[in-house]
Design a protein around this nucleic acid. Structure first.
Lengths: 192, 192
DNA sequence: AAAAAGCATTGACAAAAATCAATGCTTTTT
DNA sequence: AAAAAGCATTGATTTTTGTCAATGCTTTTT
């Protein structure tokens, strides 16, 4: 249990065995079945989740009932409504499982205590958020500057795992397109 | 000099007078005239810049010569090509001044030394990147989930300063639109 | 095993955005 | 003061994307 979590932690900041044991007392495991919610819009996000296994998505739903996916999460990724987590405001995103999943939860109080007491945890946090920022900037840049065909090609090159494991209409929802448009783009690409 | 920088720092983490004096030894002031580059694509980003005064933009240029603005920066914001800064790879973005500007630069070596020696600086850094992440997520969500009129209305509500100080064709480049389309959207909004 | 639900694709058509070209206004440069 | 450059707007047209509807296939549920 927590194998991947500590593997990732140690890759960023090396921990002693004692430190691992200490940190474990702050963690909570959670399993989620496919389609189950981790968080619903309107609730407060009380923990963020490190994904040990499975696939999740964070998304909003517009007035027409369409989903817009702000983030996918696979093994080794962290998923949450960070704004809600940090401020205590109601979440604007839903998070649910695309596949059965195993998570490691860190509650707000655990997070704050770890930040205060444990400098290595702050470094871990800083590196995580930095990585998330850079990934999102790449995505944003692609949206504002690349034609659609190129955007989809970039996406498949960067995240082949997601393309394999996630239905295409969700990838369309991630790219801000209708499923029909994505289907047509894929056909254009494959006919080359 | 450095007034706004330390004002911002203290808002996040309180510093003693001695600490401020110490940190000052790591900072470099820089002035930039309108249209001057802070960074050019292909060069390595050797420092990030805190903006004391003025306005800048970070952008890429596509094959057709069109600019795509990934970030604006006004007083109190930080601007850089973070990926290049952290990895030492050549920058993919250009940064230049929209207005005459006064900057506080923190070089890579200064940044690393401060991170190592000075826990409050790591907290400051973590908070900055977290804020930047949340702002960018809001922008991304708006792009994938809101119709254009709403997106522009959101933008003007969130960043009225930018709308006042920056030419509209740059805001179009920030939104991923042509200037003509933005002009038409503004007309549609104002005719209500 | 049968029924239902989910999914990707395709076609016809409508809506939205890009492109190309021109105009008038303002700011900057000479 | 005159010329040039930068900028926002508008119109006409083309290209791109969305919408609505239907089909066939696969997976899930009953």
């Amino acid at each position: 249990m927590y194998e991947l979590f500590f593997q990732n932690f140690n890759k960023k900041v090396a921990l002693t065995q004692e430190e691992e044991t200490l940190i474990k007392t702050y963690l909570t495991p959670k399993k989620l079945r496919k389609k189950q919610y981790l968080l619903q819009e309107g609730d407060v996000c009380k923990a963020f989740a490190f994904i040990e296994k499975g696939a999740l998505k964070a998304y909003s739903v517009d007035d027409s009932g369409n989903e817009h996916i702000i983030q996918f999460g696979l093994e080794g990724w962290i998923i949450s409504d960070l704004y809600s987590f940090l401020t205590g405001e109601p979440a604007t995103y839903n998070i649910d499982a695309i596949e059965d999943a195993e998570l490691v939860l860190i509650s707000k109080s655990a997070h704050e205590e770890l930040l205060q007491k444990f400098p290595k945890y702050e470094t871990f946090t800083r590196m995580n958020i930095t990585g998330a920022y850079l990934a999102m900037q790449k995505r944003l840049n692609s949206i504002i500057s690349s034609p659609l065909e190129e955007r989809y090609a970039n996406f498949t090159a960067l995240y082949p795992e997601i393309v394999q494991r996630v239905p295409q209409h969700m990838i369309a929802a991630y790219m801000g397109l209708t499923p029909e448009t994505l289907s047509r783009i894929r056909r254009r690409i494959s006919s080359k």
